[in-house]
Design a protein around this nucleic acid. Structure first.
Lengths: 201, 201
DNA sequence: CCATTGATAGCACGACTGTACTAGAAATGA
DNA sequence: TCATTTCTAGTACAGTCGTGCTATCAATGG
């Protein structure tokens, strides 16, 4: 290690640039030299500010999670209920402008599969957030167990559909499936007490 | 390239062993030398049988897809309808015995995000399979557009939930969410015409 | 018996990796 | 003014990577 004390502002600049580079070239292509060349600095500069390559990867992941969470929160916060929040989240996820970011986000899951303990907390955070949104919408008498189930299902389904969209690019098919799911969200009873539902004939 | 003509039986042996190695150590750790050492052969032997590292990776992916597809087909073929097939698939996915295989399967998606065209056909295949299962269960008057939506949603949701399970290990939470989803599958009307559903009071 | 084929291994080469060491440039404060 | 701190860069080194070249072993068929 060459220099430990760093200016946090400069480091933040480099970090944001590194996140953009990662979003464009993927997580597997993150080596000191290519990243440094793309950022117009020397590899040593990156080492100086991030210490270790593993620490730089960790910093990139952290910054990415931060971005994603803030964006989701800002977007969902304007929506009245869970179904509307889920729909808004889905719409944002489908925006081609964010494709690279979400693509990188799934690379995070690739890492999570190898080191789950680092990411469990983040997913817990996401579930807790969706649960609070659900309680806000349904009032304080919401069954927490049900809310947990629903929040988990919303997250997993949106993630699965988005993964499908990013790998196939078949927008129409995935959008149709998403509409089916979002429709069930607008009828929460189907998730809570499916046995009480009947066709209307 | 050193030797082109290969005995396919020996190659298949090495391939299966390589798939097991990949399932244990992940896709990022696939270099000639470590794999060869684990398989008890020389790196040159692997080169001889697979040609190029990229070709070996492709062979491993192909073999993995084959395994997964056969297993899913055999399992689902014994079930009466779509909901039962989805449940059986989910149960198998949750079996810790197959965890390493599914973990590796998600690494495939990591690759798919970088080279989508290679994997679009496979996913189309999976959707077509689930659609045929759905048509078998519902009869020839099934709406194909609806069947496509449902098949896509089933695949994406199971994949998303499984990804959640593998990264968090929170079996209870994910299982609850899966039950919610599987319950909606047993009421297909909620996916087709949600507007026609009402609470039963 | 020998010749051919295929499996296996050893070795070497160039490219790339992370990172430690060294040093110059620029800013900052006494 | 000078001394200290921080940023940046150059260089070197040990390791790993993919892969081509060469040689040895066993089996097979004439």
């Amino acid at each position: 290690m060459v220099g430990r004390p760093v200016n946090h502002q400069r480091r933040a600049e480099l970090l944001d640039a590194a996140v953009e580079y990662a979003a464009e070239y993927g997580f597997s292509e993150l080596s000191w030299r290519p990243v440094a060349a793309a950022l117009g600095v020397s590899p040593t500069t990156l080492v100086h500010h991030f210490g270790t390559k593993e620490q730089m990867l960790e910093a990139i992941l952290g910054r990415l999670r931060e971005r994603m969470f803030v964006a989701t929160r800002d977007l969902a916060g304007e929506q009245p209920d869970l179904a509307a929040q889920a729909r808004a989240t889905w719409v944002r996820a489908c925006d081609p402008q964010h494709a690279a970011e979400f693509r990188l986000f799934f690379a995070v899951y690739g890492r999570a599969l190898q080191a789950p303990q680092q990411f469990a907390a983040f997913l817990e955070h996401a579930v807790a957030y969706w649960m609070s949104a659900l309680v806000d919408a349904q009032g304080p008498d919401t069954d927490l167990a049900t809310a947990t189930r629903t929040a988990t299902l919303v997250i997993a389904t949106i993630r699965g559909l988005l993964l499908d969209l990013l790998t196939t690019g078949d927008r129409d098919r995935v959008q149709g499936a998403a509409e089916s799911f979002l429709a069930t969200l607008e009828h929460p009873a189907t998730l809570e007490h499916p046995a009480t539902l009947e066709r209307k004939a």
